[in-house]
Structures are given as structure tokens and as C-alpha cells.
Amino acid sequence: MLAANPGKTPISLLQEYGTRIGKTPGYDLLKAEGQAHQPNFTFRVTVGDISCTGGTQGLS
């Protein structure tokens, strides 16, 4: 289980977890949409046999 750690992003915690179990996370951009100044992205992350999909809002 990953514990919350101030100062570390969820992505850095996931990378550390993957390193610890010997399976580097893989990231796939599934969709990018929205206006250029406020895009929305959907990603799939895979660690070993586990895949999850989530979205984020970015700034250009």
C-alpha cells in the first residue's frame, strides 16, 4: 500500500512502488481534448498486470 507523503506527487509514489516491486509503470495517453489553454487528458497506467485509467487537466 502507498502512504500519503507530503512533498511527493502520486506519480512519484507510483514510480517508487514500481521500482520496489521490479515493475516500472507504463503510461499511455488515450485522449487529449479541450481548448489549447485548458486541455484535458486521459491516461492509462499499467504496473505489471494491473491497469487503471484516469484523467487530468493540464495547463499550456
Rank of each mutant, 00 (worst) to 15 (best):
G18D: 06
D49T: 11
N5F: 08
P10T: 02
A3L: 09
P25G: 04
L13N: 07
S12E: 10
A32K: 11
A32P: 08
Y17M: 02
L30F: 06
N40L: 10
Y17S: 03
V47I: 13
T53Y: 02
F43D: 03
Q15F: 08
Q15P: 10
S51L: 05
I21N: 05
P39L: 02
L13P: 07
R44E: 10
Q38A: 13
G55Q: 07
L30C: 06
R20E: 01
P10A: 05
R20S: 03
T53H: 08
Q38Y: 14
Q57P: 06
S60W: 13
V47L: 12
T24L: 08
P39Q: 07
K23V: 00
P25Y: 00
T46M: 07
H37A: 14
A3N: 11
T46F: 04
G18A: 06
R44Y: 04
F41E: 11
Y27H: 03
G7T: 12
F41P: 07
G34T: 09
F41G: 00
G7R: 06
G7A: 11
L2A: 12
A4G: 11
N40C: 11
T9Y: 13
G22C: 13
E16V: 09
T56I: 04
Q35L: 14
V47S: 09
S51I: 06
T53G: 06
K31C: 02
K31R: 14
P25S: 08
F41Y: 14
E16W: 05
L59Q: 12
P25A: 02
G55K: 04
G55L: 03
G18F: 00
G34W: 15
I21M: 02
T56G: 13
F41W: 14
A32E: 15
D28S: 04
S60N: 03
Q35K: 14
K8T: 13
L13T: 10
A36T: 08
A36F: 12
K23F: 00
G7D: 09
G54L: 04
S12T: 01
L2I: 14
D28C: 04
Y17A: 13
G26R: 08
G54K: 05
P6D: 15
S12F: 01
I50T: 02
Q35Y: 12
R44V: 01
G18M: 01
S12Q: 04
Q38E: 13
R44W: 04
K31Q: 15
I50Y: 00
E33A: 08
E33R: 02
G48Y: 01
Q15T: 05
V45K: 06
L14S: 03
K23C: 05
D28G: 12
S51E: 04
L30D: 08
T9M: 15
Y27V: 11
I21T: 05
G7V: 13
S12M: 06
Q35N: 15
A3Y: 10
Q35T: 13
S12I: 06
D28A: 14
H37F: 10
P6Q: 15
S12R: 02
T9G: 08
G22D: 00
Q15Y: 09
Q15G: 01
L59D: 04
S12V: 03
T19I: 03
